[in-house]
Structure formats: C-alpha cells, structure tokens
C-alpha cells in the first residue's frame, strides 16, 4: 500500500483484514454447516437439503430452489434486537441468496429445495460478507455441487482513506462501505452494494482492494474445508 497511510481506529493496515477463522461442520444435524469468526462477528451458517419442497407450489421442475434466511439473535447487538425479521434482515436474506445462487448447480437437483440459515450470534460490521463466507463453506460441506466457492469481503473509505474490511466503528464514522461477493475462479461479482461517498478513483481502488480481500477469504474457506476432510486426526475421530 502507499507510504503515507493514516492510522485506522483498529490499528490495522489499510489492506489488512480483521482476524478471521472458519470452521466447517459445526452443526451435527445439518447437512452442511460452518462457524465464522470475523472480527467480533460470530456467525453460524447451516445448509439443509437438497430436500422436499414445502410448500409444494414453490417447486420448480427443472432445478432446485434456494431459500435463505439471515437472522440476528436478540443478544447479538448493543441494544436488544427484536426477534422478528426486520426489513433489513429480509433484504440481506435476499442479497445473500442472490450472491450464492450463481455458484450452485441448481439444475443438478430438480424439484428440491436447498435451505440456507444464517444465525448471527454476535454482530460486528460486515456481517453480510462474513455470513456469505460461512454459507459458502457450509454449502461445500453439505456436498452441494458448485461451480466455485463464494468469497465475500467489504472495502470502503474511512478517515479519507480507502480501506479493506470496514468494521463496525469505521462503518459508523467512515465515508463509505462497499460489500462485495465474488466467484474468484469465474471473476464474477455476485453481491455488490455501496453506501457512502466515493470518487471514481476511490471506487476503482475499493474494487481492487475488495478483490484482494475476497481472494484471502477464498483461501481461508478452502483451509477450513481441508481441515475437516483431510486432517488425519479428524478422520480417526470420525471412525471411532
């Protein structure tokens, strides 16, 4: 990055992510699941299916349908959140679904539903991006046929500087937040949102920065999956 960097509130470098850890296979009853810790975010994503479609009229004869619910626990925020789905949660459920759908080979599962549940246990800035990384890992963990994993990361502007991975404080005091999800192998952006104020140069720079972040998350997801499926110790535990 450039030399004259401005100190971020968190002390991170402009192109530095918060601490991220992903663990695949955390919910026994789900077909696939993942826990992601992304800064202070603690999010579980679980995938069920392909399974029978309910209600039946939602069935599509030549492909699967995807259902997605993004839900915040009442204790996940500073002040208690009412448990019912807010308009914000409904919108995020929709954008997450539309971000992961291009990766799923839905035509391989006609007349079925794939259900995605995102539960926010503790929230920080960038929860939709963190959630998408967890969903992607959970989908792969469920063995759903996919074209690619979906990696997500936000870039933005805080303190006059374009930065990677905007956290809660930067989101509230900063100038812009631009969450992105992409299929890295296909170079396809499947989630793109922006609020704030960016010039053309900043816009292009934030795009590039988010791309770098997505590639990092992509590798972390692959690590989490190989940790579950290729780690010798885990294998033995499974056999016992």
């Amino acid at each position: 990055m450039s030399e004259n960097n401005i100190e971020r509130i968190s002390g991170r470098a402009p192109d530095e992510l918060r601490n991220v850890s992903i663990k695949a296979g955390v919910i026994k009853n789900a077909d696939g699941s993942a826990l992601i810790e992304f800064g202070k975010n603690k999010i579980i994503a679980a995938v069920f299916g392909p399974k029978e479609v309910h209600p039946k009229h939602m069935m599509v004869s030549n492909r699967a349908i995807i259902k997605c619910r993004y839900h915040m626990m009442p204790f996940s925020t500073d002040t208690r959140k009412r448990p019912n789905l807010s308009r914000r949660e409904i919108e995020i459920s929709k954008v997450i679904r539309e971000a992961v759908q291009p990766a799923i080979l839905m035509e391989n599962y006609p007349r079925t539903a794939i259900e995605i549940y995102v539960e926010i246990l503790q929230s920080d800035g960038g929860s939709r991006c963190a959630a998408i990384n967890a969903v992607s890992t959970a989908l792969a963990d469920a063995g759903i046929n996919m074209r690619d994993l979906i990696a997500a990361c936000a870039a933005g502007k805080a303190n006059g500087q374009v930065v990677l991975d905007v956290d809660d404080q930067e989101d509230k005091t900063g100038e812009a937040d631009m969450p992105i999800a992409m299929l890295p192998n296909m170079d396809l952006i499947t989630l793109f949102q922006l609020d704030g104020n960016l010039s053309k140069e900043e816009f292009d720079k934030a795009l590039e920065l988010a791309k770098i972040g997505c590639n990092k998350l992509y590798n972390l997801q692959k690590d989490a999956l190989s940790e579950k499926y290729f780690n010798e110790n885990n294998k033995k535990e499974d056999e016992e």
Partner: peptide, 25 residues
C-alpha cells in the same frame, strides 16, 4: 459532485470487474 453514493446488485447472477467499471462511467 460525481461521487458514487449507493449501489445495489440484484438478481441471481453477476458482473465482471470490467463490466462494473464500464457501468460506473
């Protein structure tokens, strides 16, 4: 001032980085 203030992608498909840059102009 020619600044980008808000964006939203919709529908289950995507754009490439080149397309996004073209659209922004």
């Amino acid at each position: 001032n020619g600044k980008y203030v808000s964006a939203q992608k919709g529908k289950p498909g995507g754009f490439t980085f080149e397309e996004l840059k073209e659209i922004s102009v």
